[in-house]
Write a protein that binds this DNA or RNA. Structure first.
Lengths: 161, 161
DNA sequence: TATTTGTGTGAATAATGTTCGGTGAAATAT
DNA sequence: ATATTTCACCGAACATTATTCACACAAATA
């Protein structure tokens, strides 16, 4: 995906929608001082261009008994041809993130479960199906200070009409 | 935060809104086979209870020139009294996540920037203001296979009317 | 047996979403 | 220089939705 040209209005739209995706078009248009139809067109264009990729609700993990967050580093046998391993890891519902990383290990996996018990079960059952795992290292999160996906877009990197 | 009682309808609402937070109440009500007003009441209650904590739009990082994702492990001097360090780290816009973790290091920080250049600058300037940093270890993400915050809520952990 | 509480309905109304023809400015072609 | 295309936006019209509120019903409680 290559970079896209966004002007100041686009950036404002993105900022607002990242903060509250349920904000109405009408409110957005009032904030931006333009007609609702104009805003709608821009939002649709941002979706088409692949800038806005999803509107999602964040659920408080603790409110729904998902009290354990862990990062697992996984070393697998072959550095190339990891597609199948990618697929298997990504298919696990509790797995929120799968990254290929630099360094000794191949994967960094972020996983959210109810308890350490459930984590153990997952690693025994789900990971058993992944053939080329050599080793895993797990880091448990004791407390989360900040967690969001909000991207503050630097103006310098973008064209500005 | 203690756990909350959610029935099957609540879980369906959460699932739908996590997949698409811009889904209209009307569509939700049709999916669930109940009146829009009833759905609205439930959604508001989920917000009140602190289950639904935010509606957010996800922006494609690559589309806006945020091509570098890194995880930084930070060791700080005193294990206790980290509030100020928490605050300083969380205040950095490029920092998406700050976690206290188990093990040798104290913090795991997820950071998203435009380039390795920007990462270096951040670590020189922003981190300079954090007095008690002993050491940092950085892992660069080569490729992200999966990334979301979607929580699939296990029915067994919840009451079911 | 009364009463309260919680959850939902249905209708009414305010507000929003969405479409579409038209306008003006900037970019491009002639 | 002039015509033409393209683009983003406006504004009005209409379809759809959000939101409120009085009421109903069932379960829990007094």
């Amino acid at each position: 995906m290559d970079s896209v040209t966004l002007d100041r209005i686009d950036l404002e739209i993105l900022d607002h929608l990242q903060k509250n995706s349920r904000m109405s078009n009408a409110d957005l248009s009032r904030e931006l001082g333009m007609a609702p139809s104009g805003v709608l067109e821009r939002v649709k264009k941002l979706e088409q261009k692949g800038v806005l990729i999803q509107y999602t609700a964040r659920v408080n993990p603790e409110a729904v008994n998902q009290n354990l967050l862990a990062f697992i580093f996984i070393k697998v046998a072959d550095g190339l041809g990891c597609d199948e391993t990618d697929r298997l890891l990504a298919a696990i519902e509790a797995v929120q993130e799968v990254h290929h990383i630099t360094g000794e290990d191949c994967y960094l996996v972020k996983i959210r479960v109810a308890s350490s018990n459930e984590l153990m079960q997952l690693m025994r059952t789900a990971f058993r199906d992944i053939p080329n795992i050599i080793s895993t290292r797990t880091t448990i999160v004791l407390e989360t200070v900040k967690e969001n996906q909000h991207i503050v877009i630097q103006r310098e990197t973008q064209d500005d009409k």
